[in-house]
Design a protein around this nucleic acid. Structure first.
Lengths: 106, 106
DNA sequence: CAGTATCCACATTGATACTG
DNA sequence: CAGTATCAATGTGGATACTG
């Protein structure tokens, strides 16, 4: 939609600045997860949004998607090197949220 | 809209996870700015979105808003202590965007 | 199991015009 | 200068049903 990147921070936010992307990435920090397992770790996300989110992360080369040719289908998602380079940022966002004194469910 | 904070990271994103908020906060890292000056630092933002964004940041106690009783009107925005505590995160987002090898205007 | 396809309600945003 | 009001266009997201 918007294509003007007038500062580096904006570039970062265009990649991970949505409701679900950081959460998906965060859950992959520990290692690869099977599709259904990853989705179950994220309460509240709809099937549609989950697929859409991982698809965009894949397109942006932040996660990898591996399809195993078995029955029933098995798909694993993992962080790419580029995705792994976001680790400190994701941990920072998480720890800030954890220690923020105003933390409360609005 | 969504009120489920099932992880700290989500709490953080609910506060700054929009297109304009991080950019506004970032430009205030150097110190307080007059409304018009701040807005001019952000190409592409509409008048409406600017006002809406700073209003929400103010409501969430991330920025302060000071109205000077002069003519013509003068308003200054500044980071609150809570907002300042986001400094490392904002700098992290910015430097990641600056060094990301895939950095390119899509 | 993993994912796609629709439909549709609702939220977001930009443009324009206007106020104190 | 700083901000509000309004309208219309677009985007986003959820529910449901379906496929390989």
């Amino acid at each position: 939609m918007n294509s003007k990147n007038f500062c580096p921070l904006d570039h970062t936010m265009n990649l991970i600045g949505t409701k679900w992307k950081p959460i998906v990435l965060f859950h992959l920090l520990e290692g690869p997860l099977r599709s259904g397992v990853l989705q179950k770790k994220i309460p509240g996300i709809s099937n549609k949004m989950f697929t859409q989110t991982v698809r965009e992360l894949e397109k942006d080369k932040l996660v990898t998607r591996v399809v195993f040719p078995v029955v029933p289908p098995k798909v694993e998602y993992d962080l790419s090197d580029r995705g792994k380079s976001l680790k400190n940022i994701l941990l920072g966002l998480d720890s800030w949220g954890a220690t923020d004194t105003y933390n409360q469910t609005y």
